[in-house]
């Protein structure tokens, strides 16, 4: 099993590699189109500004490589944080188009609904699965994950919602459709909960 962590210049890639290793998997960090095309699974990481993320993907020439791997060859892919957000059609952050793999928008936390909570949402939060899925098997204990973000996804297709969390209000924190999954939180920085998620991603056969 080879997992390629896509390097497009944003995000803490070493942490993801460390967690995959701990979960018993093998990964390679790469921006090389041939490595990405040959990978059995992909991770699209990312931390930072949405527009900067899309710009880097366009500049690096990876856009057709990603579309082909994910949409045509159906390579399983996991987006993390900004990597998940980029899978949406559009973001308010920079008002730019994303990869368009989900019919969804990235919107800023609505401050008027937040009370005295600060944005970014930074810290641990419980995640509630919204549907049965190999990445979120039923568990008795609620799972906690680490979040750091000011924007979140809003899906136009309710069946794309994989999990929700609550910060000021309920928001979608994970999405999935066929071979594509995305998570706002950071499994690579979420202790045994994140390790469990990585193990399930390694096993995942969509």
């Amino acid at each position: 099993m080879s997992i390629c962590i896509i390097d497009y210049g944003l995000g803490n890639l070493a942490s993801i590699r460390n967690m995959i290793r701990k979960a018993g998997g093998k990964s390679e960090i790469s921006s090389d189109p041939t490595v990405i095309a040959a990978a059995e699974k992909l991770i699209l990481p990312g931390v930072g500004h949405f527009a900067a993320g899309m710009e880097n993907i366009l500049k690096s020439g990876l856009l057709p490589v990603l579309h082909e791997a994910v949409l045509e060859r159906k390579t399983p892919i996991l987006g993390i944080c900004l990597g998940m957000q980029l899978m949406a059609g559009h973001s308010e952050e920079g008002d730019v188009a994303g990869l368009g793999w989900f019919d969804a928008d990235i919107i800023r936390f609505r401050q008027e609904d937040m009370g005295n909570l600060k944005v970014p949402h930074m810290g641990w939060n419980e995640v509630k699965p919204a549907k049965a899925h190999a990445l979120f098997p039923n568990v008795d204990e609620p799972e906690r994950f680490y979040f750091v973000h000011s924007y979140h996804i809003r899906c136009n297709n309710p069946e794309d919602v994989l999990a929700t969390a609550h910060y000021g209000y309920d928001f979608t924190c994970a999405v999935s459709r066929k071979n594509i999954a995305g998570m706002q939180f950071h499994p690579e920085k979420s202790h045994r909960f994140g390790m469990g998620m990585m193990e399930r991603f390694i096993q995942w056969q969509p």
């Binding site: 070493a14 942490s15 460390n18 967690m19 701990k22 680490y146 750091v148 950071h186 690579e188 920085k189 979420s190 202790h191 994140g194 390790m195």
Partner: peptide
């Protein structure tokens, strides 16, 4: 240290 840290 970073390699051992599975939290931020």
């Amino acid at each position: 240290m970073a390699g051992e840290c599975f939290m931020p």
